[in-house]
Every structure is written in C-alpha cells, then in structure tokens.
Computed example of a mutant assay.
Amino acid sequence: MADGMSSFWGPVTSTTEWCEKNYAYSSYIAEFYNTISTIPSILLALIGLINALKQRFEKRFSVLHISNMILAIGSMLFHATLQHVQQQSDETPMVWEMLLYIYILYSPDWHYRSTMPTFLFLYGAAFAIVYSQIRFGIGFKVHYVILCLLCIPRMYKYYIHTKDVSAKRLAKLYVGTIILGSLCWLCDRVFCKEVSSWPINPQGHALWHVLMGFNSYFANMFLMFCRAQQLGWAPRVAHFMGLLPYVKIQKPKTK
C-alpha cells in the first residue's frame, strides 16, 4: 500500500494480488492501472454488441458480447477492491464465458440441440454455487485452462475451412494477442520482484487486460464470420474508420 494512503475497502481478502502497488493513487482503487485497463474491453464488447444487434445476428452473439462486458466489469471491481467477493465477480464470469464459447463453437454440429445448452447452463450454475463456498486456488486456473484448450481444436478447424483472407487475418490477430497477452501476464507474475525495482513498472497485468479485450473482440468477429458463412449470409470483413475490423453481412432476401 502507498505511504499515507488508507483503504476504503478494508484489508485485502482476495486470494490473488498482482504486481502493482495498492492504493497508490486513490483510497477507492486498490490497483489503479489494473482497474482502468478493463475499459477498452468494455468499449470493444459494446461495439461488437451494437454490430450484432444492428445486423440481426443470432442472439448467441449478443449474449457473447454482453458476457465480455460483464467479465470486464467484474474484473474492474475485483482490481479496484481486492475483495474475495469481487474476485468471484471476475473469475466466475470467466468460466461462464468459456462455456458460451464452447457452445458457439460446437453447437452447429451437435445433433441433439437442447442437450448442450442445458448441460452447459447447469454446469455453469453448479460451478458458481460451489465456487462461492470453496476457494479453488490453483484448481481454478487449471479448470479454466482446460476449458480454453477445449476450444482450440474447433477454432483451428474453422480457420482451415475459411478461405477468406480477411477472416484468416482476424484469427491470426486473435492468436497474436493471446500470445503477447500471456507473455505480459507471465512476466508480471514471475518477475514481479525485479519489475518492482524498475523506475517505471510496465504494468504487465494491465497490458494483459488491454490485449485480452482485443483478443475477445477478434475471436468474436471471427466466429461471427464463420457462422454467417454457415448460414449463407455472404459475410465480409469491413473496417470502422479504416482501422477496427468488423463483420458485415448480406442476408438473402426472403420470398
């Protein structure tokens, strides 16, 4: 904690702290940079949601963008308070979000349409209840990594079956941001003692937040493109103000 700065939220009760001095700028924000770095994730998810609603994509994508926003807000609350309850508001939505990605990735080829969403919903609800009572520690990270790994084969299958160069670029941006973000996360965890002695802390975890905001956005756009292809909606990748890519579709006219 910074010298002379009191904590509005009281003692730290979370099971995890990051490589940033607590309450360095405000008594209301425990980890300042880790808190404000979630803002790009919220804005990118909002842009994705507006795009999905405006073009009338399937509701699953609206829910996906909303889940990205909920996760970012939960992360903001966690880093602002470093309280265990707020930690759950960050980590539980992480699991819910991955379950939603699993549904979007695998449901097109699932023969029994109601079984997958029912199972994933019950799994997510059970996890939330159990996790509210038990602190998993390293078990949470292992569980989350397993859910992420389940998505990789399907993402790769979508990539190799997509011929559009712009869509493939979205997938490459997704891979690039997750690799770079993971390096920032690892450096912040492993080399915290060394980094803390530098004149300027590069704020690796805050950079992770920013990169993962873009990572989620690129993943969502790629999945929206692939799903639009499956439905025959003639998708193409356009760019907002010549920079931010988004998926534009042309639905066939109904007779």
Rank of each mutant, 00 (worst) to 15 (best):
A24T: 04
Y159S: 01
V130Y: 15
Y144G: 02
I104V: 14
Q87M: 12
R113I: 08
K157F: 00
I160N: 02
N34W: 02
R113D: 07
G137I: 06
G213D: 07
S14L: 05
P245L: 09
S62F: 01
F214W: 13
T162C: 14
F119K: 02
A2E: 15
L147Q: 11
N51M: 10
I42N: 01
L122V: 07
Q203M: 14
M212C: 14
L122Y: 09
Y159Q: 00
K251A: 08
Y103S: 11
W110V: 01
Y246V: 00
W208M: 05
V130I: 15
C192A: 12
E97V: 08
I138M: 12
L183I: 15
K54I: 03
I104G: 05
Q88A: 06
Q250A: 05
L53T: 12
Y158H: 09
V145S: 13
Q250E: 14
I104Q: 11
A30P: 03
K157D: 08
S196H: 11
V190N: 08
E31G: 05
D90A: 10
L71R: 03
T35C: 07
A219E: 01
L99E: 09
M69N: 07
Y131K: 13
V130T: 11
F218E: 00
F127L: 09
V175R: 02
F57R: 11
V175I: 15
S197I: 11
L105D: 06
S6D: 13
Q203G: 05
H143T: 13
R135W: 04
Y246R: 08
